[in-house]
Design a binder for these strands. Structure first.
Lengths: 368, 368
DNA sequence: CTTACGATTGAGACCGGACTCACATGGGGT
DNA sequence: ACCCCATGTGAGTCCGGTCTCAATCGTAAG
């Protein structure tokens, strides 16, 4: 129908105005639905717009209103279903409020993240939701704030940055699940995370990721409440890539006093840990108990299905979007955020440790 | 340091020009690195820009160059690791060529997809990569083309739309893997896909998704080559959501002449199919063999690990980006695309069917 | 029959860059 | 000494909208 080549210059308000025989200003008013326009003019303009297939140039509009009706999202790893689900929460909420969402994936690379933030700022998004790769370096995030763009952090806090953070409080569930492991008889409970940190874990040191800090804190709480001493050697940070995670898991399972329960700090770590366990020929939960963060669909397919800690990820995403939009609409107003809780989902990967089994058998024999 | 409130008006070329005591035009030239500028002026301008922390307004630039140095990507389901990985291929390639990438997720919803395309067009991206949810409705894609923006399709063709498509050729691997199943003794081989279609599968009808069409074609080829008759009842489209997929899997396994091998058309379908098999108390591969498309990490964790068909997803993404960029740089030029092949990865989920086992046992007994 | 006031309307500035055009300036060639 | 052309430079236009402002119109009030 139309010339399919590239020249197809877009029709502008001026074109529409000419066709409708009115001034550019009037056409713009009718199209933009502002100011006073007589019914006669409005009708003619809209008809002309329809006829010419007029599409407003959003860029031009953004340029002199300063608003783009778009929010930008920066995540580290879109391959991680955790972020995928959160993204849906964000999208749905934003869409309902009339905002478009554009996403940039950084592959957990700090440089890429800085770049992503710059790009989104340049495109004049109205606000940003960022799941920062590193909570240590956040100069680029401060820039967002300085540029007067609302910012909401997702999943991780940036200490020293006064910005709303939407995340589940992981301490209670970490405590609960550790207590459950202790109750099952475990004493050597290991925690594995890819969180990067200079040097090995020590109690009391400030961790860059509040999420991980809470998971460890809750664990330590439960241990102390049970009269046990949290062991620094059993908390392994800097787990790195898949091979490195597997090496760490092997190490934990083959030590003189091996870990009898492993906790994976997220679904990606879990993948490698389970693989390592299987490669060692150990069975879950008979030889070693396993617990993981992130309720991914595949966790139900292993034998046995895995006991997981589940967060309301979709809701958290939705809430982040909601907070951001409120911030965009009422700048400066202090907003309050709902607190989210994670829950422990008992499936089949936690059991009594081998030594415990022996003890039970012995006491049963003694009783009979 | 700076006033942290929102007023912080951005510094513009005009500001820089004033500070450097030159005309706006000269400042713009020095900043934009075009035209003729004396060393003296350039120096002063750059110094002033640095001093004032000048950041070009990308929107304004885009508005009168028509180029945004950004490519837009529209995918149906970013939660699907398949797209996540492809996205990385796209990002890496685009970044290397100096393009930014923005992504919009549609949740496989056609309306959302139309919207996404509109938004990206409005933001004046230089080109689009789209994995269309439905190959049947592509009016919005035609609009991209009409607007003179390069477009590359990912994973799925849109028949009747003259646009480059980057995807692996699934026919050979479908044929190979089906042949493998046949060789293992299977005669009742079922295929399950969520592809939406009016009515059940019939031979020879045009499927909206070329990916699925190829998978089925390859399968039928292998069957015919083995002298078997492709059975329409064993190809199940419209599998729908998780529950629906499970119901279909159950049906296939409980028919009078049940399927002895199941093929899941993608990793998401696979999740539900395996779950259904497990819930029926059937064991893979003893009671039923299983084969799936998509080599997801979790497929190695099940017992037994699953035999999968793997595509070079990252490379396909990279190639799509590469094709799009070539199209952006040389409009109109016909580009040729590499052909990608998928490969069958033997793991442990395919074995001889039960009946076959019996037959083997019997013949072994007869021979002894 | 004036006057006044709200509704309409058009001209034009403006957002922040890119780019055109006319006008210096000056060194090289003859 | 004179012409030519490359290099520098500033004024101003344009992109496609939004928005201000002053002028115009109609009509109800005085």
């Amino acid at each position: 129908m139309k010339n399919s080549s590239s020249r197809q210059r877009d029709t502008t308000v001026a074109d529409v105005a000419k066709a409708a025989q009115v001034s550019k200003a009037q056409a713009a008013r009718a199209l933009g639905n502002y100011g006073a326009v007589s019914d006669d003019v409005r009708e003619r303009v809209l008809a002309a717009a329809e006829e010419l297939n007029y599409r407003p140039n959003e860029l031009a509009r953004t340029m002199n209103t300063g608003k783009s009706n778009t929010i930008g999202v920066v995540v580290g790893d879109i391959e991680n279903p955790h972020f995928g689900l959160a993204m849906r929460g964000i999208s749905d909420t934003a869409k309902a409020a009339g905002f478009d969402v554009i996403l940039i994936n950084t592959g957990e690379d700090h440089v890429a993240e800085v770049d992503a933030v710059r790009v989104l700022l340049e495109k004049r998004v109205d606000g940003l939701i960022v799941a920062p790769a590193s909570s240590a370096e956040y100069e680029h995030l401060r820039r967002v704030h300085d540029a007067g763009r609302p910012l909401v952090l997702f999943d991780r806090k940036a200490p020293g940055l006064d910005v709303p953070v939407v995340a589940a409080d992981m301490t209670p569930v970490a405590r609960e699940s550790t207590a459950y492991l202790i109750e099952s008889g475990h004493r050597q409970i290991a925690f594995i995370s890819t969180l990067e940190f200079e040097g090995p874990y020590r109690h009391g040191m400030g961790l860059a990721s509040s999420q991980i800090a809470e998971r460890i804190d809750g664990m330590n709480q439960a241990l102390r409440e049970a009269g046990l001493d949290p062991c620094e050697e059993l908390v392994r940070l800097n787990a790195g890539d898949a091979d490195s995670i597997k090496a760490i898991a092997r190490e934990l399972l083959l030590m003189p006093e091996p870990a009898t329960a492993l906790i994976a700090s997220d679904g990606l770590v879990a993948l490698s840990v389970v693989e390592a366990v299987q490669e060692l020929g150990l069975r879950i939960p008979h030889d070693v108990s396993f617990l993981m963060y992130d309720d991914f669909p595949w966790t139900k397919l292993t034998t046995p299905p895995l006991t997981v800690i589940s967060q309301p990820v979709y809701d958290i995403g939705a809430s982040a979007a909601d907070a951001l939009i409120r911030l965009i609409r009422q700048p400066g107003k202090v907003i309050e955020l709902p607190v989210f809780q994670a829950t422990l989902k008992h499936r089949g990967s936690v059991g009594a440790p081998v030594s415990q089994r022996k003890r039970k058998r012995e006491s049963a024999a003694a009783a009979s």
